[in-house]
C-alpha cells in the first residue's frame, strides 16, 4: 500500500481516544482480584480452622509473601504496558522477593521439627490438588492482566508476560491460602512454587502470542 494511501486511511479512521492510565489499570486489576477473593470466601471455601491457623507464623508467611509478590508483580506488569518502560528491573525485584520469601520459609521450617522425614511431608495427593486449585484461581487475574496487556503497548512482551504470570499466580495462591489446610512451609514451598511456576510458564509462552501488536 502506498504511504499516502495508508496515511489517509489512518487519518479517516481517527477517533478520540481515552488515554491509558496506570491508576485505572491498577484499579481494574485490583477489582478483579478482590471480586475473586470475595466470591471464593462467599462460596464457603474458607478453611474451617481459620482462627487457629491465624496463630501459626507460617500462615502469615504464605499470606504476606504471596500478597507481596502479587502486588509487586501486578505493578511491574502494569507499568511495563507503556512502550517506553521495561519490566526487567521489576522482574529482578520480584526474583529477590521470591528468594526472601523462600528464605523466610526455611527459617520458619527450621524452627519447627528439623529437616527429618521430608518425604512424608510432601503429601503429594493433596499437593497435586493444591497445584490444580492454584492454577484455576490464577485464571481471573491472568485474563484481567492479559486484557490490559492487549490494550497496552508492552515492548518487552516476554518480560511483561513473566510479570503478569507471577502476579496472577501469586494472587491465585493468595486466594487459595484461605482454603488450604496445610501450613507446613516445606509443603507450601514445594507445591505452591509448582502451581505458581506452571501459571508463570503458561503466561510467558501464551501471552506474547495473544497480545502481539
Amino acid at each position: 500500500m502506498p504511504n499516502e494511501q495508508l496515511l489517509e486511511r489512518l487519518v479517516s479512521d481517527l477517533k478520540p481516544v481515552r488515554r491509558r492510565s496506570v491508576a485505572r489499570d491498577a484499579l481494574v486489576f485490583a477489582a478483579v482480584c478482590v471480586i475473586e477473593l470475595a466470591l471464593f470466601i462467599g462460596l464457603g471455601a474458607m478453611r474451617p480452622d481459620m482462627t487457629a491457623a491465624m496463630e501459626a507464623p507460617s500462615f502469615w508467611w504464605k499470606l504476606g509473601g504471596l500478597g507481596l509478590i502479587a502486588v509487586v508483580g501486578g505493578a511491574v506488569a502494569i507499568i511495563s504496558l507503556d512502550p517506553a518502560r521495561s519490566p526487567r528491573r521489576g522482574l529482578r525485584w520480584l526474583v529477590a522477593i521470591v528468594a526472601i520469601c523462600l528464605a523466610a520459609g526455611w527459617i520458619i521450617d527450621a524452627s519447627r521439627e528439623g529437616f527429618s522425614a521430608l518425604a512424608a511431608r510432601v503429601d503429594w495427593p493433596d499437593g497435586l490438588l493444591c497445584v490444580y486449585k492454584i492454577v484455576l484461581l490464577s485464571v481471573p487475574p491472568l485474563v484481567g492482566l492479559g486484557l490490559l496487556m492487549r490494550r497496552g503497548a508492552p515492548t518487552d512482551t516476554s518480560g511483561t508476560a513473566l510479570a503478569v504470570g507471577v502476579a496472577a499466580a501469586a494472587w491465585g495462591a493468595f486466594v487459595f491460602v484461605f482454603a488450604c489446610p496445610h501450613d507446613d512451609p516445606f509443603y507450601i514451598a514445594l507445591w505452591y512454587a509448582l502451581g505458581c511456576g506452571l501459571v508463570t510458564i503458561l503466561a510467558r509462552f501464551l501471552l506474547p502470542r495473544l497480545t502481539r501488536w
Binding site: 495508508l6 488515554r19 491509558r20 504496558l81 507503556d82
Partner: peptide
C-alpha cells in the same frame, strides 16, 4: 508502514506529561 499502524493503534498509550520521543523510539 507497520510502525505507523502500531502508532495509530496504540496512540492512547502516549502520556502527554512525558516526552514523546522515547515513546516513539520504543515503538
Amino acid at each position: 508502514q507497520d510502525t505507523l499502524l502500531a502508532i495509530h493503534e496504540k496512540r492512547h498509550t502516549y502520556d502527554p506529561s512525558r516526552p514523546i520521543e522515547p515513546w516513539l523510539a520504543a515503538i
